[in-house]
Amino acid sequence: MFSSQGYASAARRYAAIDTSSRVEGATPHQLVRILFEELLRAMDSATLALKGGDMAKATERQTRALTILHALESSLDFEKGGEIALSLATIYRESRRRMIRAIGEKDAAPMESARAFIADIASAWDQIA
């Protein structure tokens, strides 16, 4: 049997392998989809940790979410994307601001509202063929 620490470590290794296998050979569109999936998972985990009072876990998951948001924003092409890229950048920045506020105030509500923004974008991305 695994200890709770051993189980968590095994789960992280499995998740890393799963993500690696999905990324290998993925198209750029699929890579963005994977980023959105991972971002939503990190935000969900941070929210649960906040609600449970586990600030270390909440901060860890928030850091992952912020890193993914940064990657998404960095990949925007403002020349080709025009107004859409500008709108996405604004949403990503506001989402980051809310996530930071959630941790600072130890309140899950700003994290949940940031997640709603991202979920809408992820859903729209899934509609693109």
Rank of each mutant, 00 (worst) to 15 (best):
I118H: 15
L48M: 04
T59C: 01
A42Q: 11
S4F: 14
E94F: 07
I100M: 00
A26K: 04
R101V: 06
A119M: 04
L66P: 00
L35I: 11
R64T: 12
T90F: 06
R98G: 03
E24S: 12
D126L: 01
H29Q: 12
E24M: 13
A85F: 01
H70S: 05
A109V: 07
R97F: 05
A11Q: 15
A58I: 03
A26Y: 02
A124F: 05
Q127I: 00
E83P: 02
M55K: 13
V32W: 13
L86I: 08
P28E: 09
A10V: 00
E83C: 00
G6E: 13
F78W: 04
A124C: 03
S87P: 00
R115M: 04
E112D: 11
S45M: 13
S20T: 12
Y7F: 09
E24G: 06
E112M: 10
F78L: 05
H29K: 10
L66T: 02
L86S: 03
T47I: 00
F117I: 02
E105P: 00
I128V: 09
D44K: 11
L35M: 15
E38L: 07
M43G: 06
E112G: 06
M55Y: 13
A15S: 14
M43R: 07
E94P: 03
S95M: 07
A102Y: 06
I121K: 14
R96M: 08
A122D: 03
E37V: 10
A11P: 08
R98H: 09
E79H: 07
S9A: 15
Q5F: 13
A58Q: 02
A11S: 15
